[in-house]
């Protein structure tokens, strides 16, 4: 967690690195629509992993339900546009709020009754399946398409470059939210809950309340991202409530290192890009090579490098400090 030094210098540096990274990517990939779409998707995925870091990394709750919130937010935003004509630029906030509401309804009893660790993971994994099955009943098996209009008030463009820019803005906002949390009381409280919930309670922390805060912020961000996800995917259906995508978010967060923004971004960008590369190159002959890769990395990280990429960054930092 001391990857780029400390204090406000750290924030400036971190944002600079991310901004440069985001600016360089299109220079390399410019002109090829497939790569542009891929870049936008990877950046959006990174934002999801960074949002997951709030509940999973800081608060230490193994949430496997990301796409419950992505789905609710995205579908609500889209439906508001299709059915009520509310432009998505406003609608995403309603979508985020809808996800947040779900999080509150689920979170209050869950934390009230002390559900944690594996039981929390299972509960959130089950949440995705419940939404999947119920929306299948409500929406049918159909794919729904967004209106063909484009423009900033619809947050929808035919150019994937602009979609990439929108995803980048979302990533930067999510990173800023993480940094704000990390540097304030709530961040310290969440981390202490992750370390030892009883000890946290014994220094006066209302652990249920703070876990709920983390869940609310996380779900709101994912809800907002849901619509962008739909724009990139070009359609939506009940299949948005996808268990394995939800799992991937948590996997990338773990591989990145709990509580590490930069670790999360690196792991999401590398794994997701590699995964896409495998899928496009070998997808027809050896399907699932991307997920096989996640699996192998996950086992190696779990056994040999439990602190993930952040642990590696930390070690490099320490070595460099010694040299100086």
């Amino acid at each position: 967690m001391v990857a780029f030094g400390t204090g406000s210098k750290k924030i400036a540096l971190e944002l600079l690195v991310i901004a440069i990274l985001l600016a360089v990517i299109p220079l390399v990939l410019m002109g090829n629509a497939y790569y542009e779409l891929l870049a936008a998707t990877v950046v959006l995925f990174s934002s999801m992993v960074v949002a997951w870091n709030i509940i999973g990394g800081y608060a230490g709750q193994l949430d496997l339900g990301a796409f419950a919130y992505v789905g609710v937010g995205g579908i609500i935003t889209s439906e508001l546009w299709i059915k009520a004509g509310i432009p998505p630029l406003l609608g995403i906030f309603a979508g985020g709020a809808a996800s947040l509401l779900i999080a509150v309804i689920i979170g209050i009893p869950t934390f009230r009754f002390g559900i944690k660790e594996v039981w929390y993971a299972l509960l959130t994994a089950a949440l995705v399946v419940i939404f999947n099955n119920l929306s299948r009943v409500l929406m049918g098996p159909t794919d729904y398409y967004l209106p063909p209009k484009t423009g900033i008030i619809y947050l929808k463009f035919n150019s994937y470059e602009i979609m990439y820019a929108i995803a980048s803005v979302i990533l930067i906002l999510t990173v800023l939210a993480n940094l704000a949390i990390e540097r304030s009381k709530i961040g310290y409280y969440l981390k202490s809950i992750r370390e030892d919930e009883l000890a946290a309670e014994m220094i006066g922390i209302d652990t249920r309340r703070y876990k709920l805060y983390a869940l609310m912020i996380y779900s709101f961000f994912l809800g907002v991202m849901g619509y962008i996800y739909i724009v990139l995917a070009a359609s939506f259906s009940y299949r948005m409530f996808d268990s394995s995508s939800s799992l991937s978010i948590a996997i990338m967060g773990i591989i990145g290192g709990l509580g590490s923004i930069e670790g999360g971004i690196v792991s999401a960008m590398v794994l997701r890009s590699l995964g896409e590369y495998f899928r496009s190159s070998f997808g027809s002959t050896v399907p699932g090579l991307d997920l096989l890769l996640y699996g192998i990395v996950l086992v190696i990280v779990g056994i040999f490098q439990p602190e993930g990429i952040a642990g590696i960054i930390n070690r490099i930092n320490k070595a460099m400090k010694k040299k100086r």
Partner: peptide
């Protein structure tokens, strides 16, 4: 993490 990895 490890057992999910094995599963994948």
């Amino acid at each position: 993490a490890v057992t999910v990895g094995l599963g994948l």
